[in-house]
Design a protein around this nucleic acid. Structure first.
Length: 601
RNA sequence: GGCGAGGUAGCUCAACGGUGGAGCAGUGGACUCAUAAGCCAUUGGAUGUGGGUUCAAAUCCCACCCUCGCCA
């Protein structure tokens, strides 16, 4: 039975490079999970994209003297480059700056409106007559009316720390042109979360038994403590998604407003699924994951995003419901599937301190890959993944994990057995004759790994799953020491053949157990074991054009993927190839070299 | 100052109500197929401090101390 599984990975915000903490927080666990489910034969759809709207991007564009579009595109292309290098197999990695996403977001907006979950309200906001536009809070500075500090932001003073009432700021100035702004009333749409609260609480209670406690605490716990209240979903800005035409016809003032980025970015999971279907030539395909009660949707995110994915996004889905299909013009409207799990990770620190891009206290992923291999990074980030609490990236630990576990336990195991076999049986799997209990016991232990490792991945306990696979590799090393084929080969070659056959079969199985974590090296090992073709499909990029311009996407082509989550079927006489070491042993000097890079710009 | 997370073997972390574990490091040993890798044995612990609940607490409750983060 094949289950539809939607793997949603957090949308990286397109105004900064990706560091190792971002990877281990959401993108990497999503890929490991998706690869496992693909090997299992489930119907996997893994989607994400660049979050390309919002004030931080306009601020950066202003600072660099360029456009928000250029800022977003530069980082977006960097993300795609990184994800290819690291083997993150998105079925579609797109962007929120597409015509498709715009239409889907507007449809969710209209569906919420149709169901009565939107209302409008006025608020006072700084307006710059010199530019004919409203200014976001962080664009207005002035003198603090409490402490007299001259560069206080309009909403808050960095000197005395007080929250300020915008209309009492002394000598307000626009940060853009130093002109004097004035307060004007502006009207916005709000989502009526108070009226959706009961539905959201029911949704969360059903999932209480299997969600991570930290996620439950920040969703259900928070709601029960503080209640939900309406939240503005539009703002005065020109970079972002305009309101639907139906709304703009209601009044000219709506033409200058955009959807708030927190409201539309999460809709990306839905819009990307729809875009993927169109690209695959099946525009209805998205319904398999979004309208099928059997479908399971997983959202891999960092802890900073919990309220948006565990509360607000479900509220949007509940509030839109069948009306989404109606707005999109479908004759047989169906409700939308709510999140099955939100396995949010905590944060990864770096050498004992919080990662900080501005202080260059970070290990940048693309920079890392110029010196080390992707599987070495994937392994260390997996065994040190912050699944239940913050963890620490430590270069000395990276060095040890790489050399002592990846190289010594697993890589060396594959290498020693393949080399030995090539030496004495001329590159063929030897005929074992009849297996002894010792042999079948080992093979049984390894076969059980497909259950134990698989169950752990299913439960999104990835670090435990990787540790279990490594433990099984250790079992094979023990078996080899017990049988000692290097001695047997001198006195009893059939016995040596039996041991090497058994070890080869175990390694062939371990190759699959490790594949979700270490796809590059497992694919190479697949070749050394004599197979043609690869375990997984291939990644491709494409440039697409729509009314908003061009956007680059990363896609996944499953054609030619031969990997299956099942024990080895290797048999006597199968040909093998000459192995090359799977992993690079690192010199201890890298620890100090890498530490010296930190904090320097 | 408020909120949150955490303090378990030298290091990184599991156990989260029922005899304190793993990996690495350390020590001793046998082996040599392999990237001087692997294997066997073994030394390390008032689970931050003090109280409480319980037949039973690293685990639940309270106070305090320390670390880190977020907000201020």
């Amino acid at each position: 039975m094949s289950v539809p599984i939607l793997v949603s990975a957090a949308w990286p915000y397109a105004n900064a490079e990706i560091h190792v903490g971002n990877l281990t927080g959401s993108y990497l666990p999503a890929d490991i999970f998706a690869r496992y489910q693909r090997l299992k034969g489930n119907q996997v759809l893994m989607v994400s994209g660049s979050d390309s709207h919002g004030t931080p991007i306009t601020v950066r564009a202003d600072a660099e003297g360029t456009t928000p579009l250029a800022v977003y595109q530069r980082f977006h292309e960097g993300f795609i480059d990184l994800f290819q290098q690291l083997g993150l197999n998105y079925d579609l990695f797109t962007s929120t700056h597409t015509q498709n996403h715009q239409k889907v977001s507007q449809s969710v907006f209209l569906a919420l409106k149709k169901n009565g979950y939107l209302y409008t309200e006025s608020q006072m906001q700084w307006y710059a007559p010199s530019q004919n536009r409203f200014l976001p809070d962080r664009y207005v500075e002035g003198t603090c009316y409490i402490c007299g500090y001259e560069n206080a932001r309009s909403d808050q003073c960095d000197k005395c720390g007080n929250l300020l009432e915008a209309d009492r700021l002394i000598n307000p100035k626009s940060k853009i042109d130093c002109s004097t702004p004035e307060l004007r009333s502006t009207e916005h749409f709000y989502i009526d979360l108070a009226r959706l609260q009961d539905h959201v609480v029911d949704f969360l209670k059903i999932r209480d038994s299997y969600w991570r406690p930290n996620v439950m605490r920040q969703s259900l716990g928070q709601i029960l403590a503080e209640k939900l209240h309406g939240r503005a979903i539009t703002r005065d800005l020109d970079w972002g998604i305009p309101l639907p035409e139906e709304v703009m016809e209601e009044g000219k003032e709506w033409e200058t407003k955009r959807l708030y980025v927190w409201f539309e970015a999460v809709i990306g999971y839905l819009s990307a699924s729809i875009e993927w279907g169109k690209l695959a030539g099946n525009p209805e395909a998205w319904r398999t994951w979004w309208q099928n009660p059997e479908s399971r949707t997983y959202y891999f995110i960092g802890k900073d995003n919990i309220p948006f994915h565990a509360v607000i996004w479900p509220a949007e889905l509940i509030g839109a419901g069948k009306a989404f299909d109606e707005v999109m013009g479908d004759a047989n409207p169906q409700p939308l599937v709510l999140p099955y799990d939100v396995p949010a990770n905590e944060f990864m620190n770096l050498e004992g301190q919080k990662i900080s891009g501005s202080r260059n206290w970070a290990v940048w992923a693309r920079d890392f890959l110029t010196r080390y291999d992707p599987d070495a990074l994937r392994y260390y980030l997996t065994v040190n993944m912050p699944e239940s609490k913050d963890t620490d990236w430590d270069w000395d630990e990276f060095y040890h994990r790489n050399n002592d576990e990846l190289v010594a336990t697993w890589g060396n195991l594959a290498n020693r057995v393949l080399s030995f076999c090539n030496k004495y049986w001329e590159g063929q799997v030897p005929d074992p004759g009849e297996l002894t209990d010792l042999d079948t016991d080992l093979l049984k232990i390894i076969e059980e790994g497909f259950e134990t490792v698989g169950d752990l991945i299913d439960a999104v306990k990835l670090r435990a799953a990787a540790a279990e696979a490594m433990r099984l590799a250790s079992e094979v090393n023990k078996y080899l020491d017990m049988t000692a084929p290097w001695q047997q080969v001198k006195t009893d070659k059939p016995a040596a053949a039996r041991a090497i056959f058994t070890a080869l079969k175990a390694i062939d199985s371990l190759k699959i157990l490790f594949a979700p974590f270490l796809p590059f090296t497992c694919d190479r090992l697949h070749g050394y074991m004599g197979y043609d073709g690869s375990l997984f499909g291939t990644q491709t990029t494409e440039i697409l054009t729509d009314e908003l311009g061009q956007h680059k996407v990363l896609r996944y082509d499953p054609t030619g993927a031969t990997g299956k989550w099942e024990p080895s079927k290797l048999k006597a006489g199968d040909p093998l190839r000459q192995p090359v070491a799977l992993f690079k042993k690192l010199d201890v000097s890298i620890v100090e070299e890498e530490r010296a890079r930190l904090g320097n710009k």
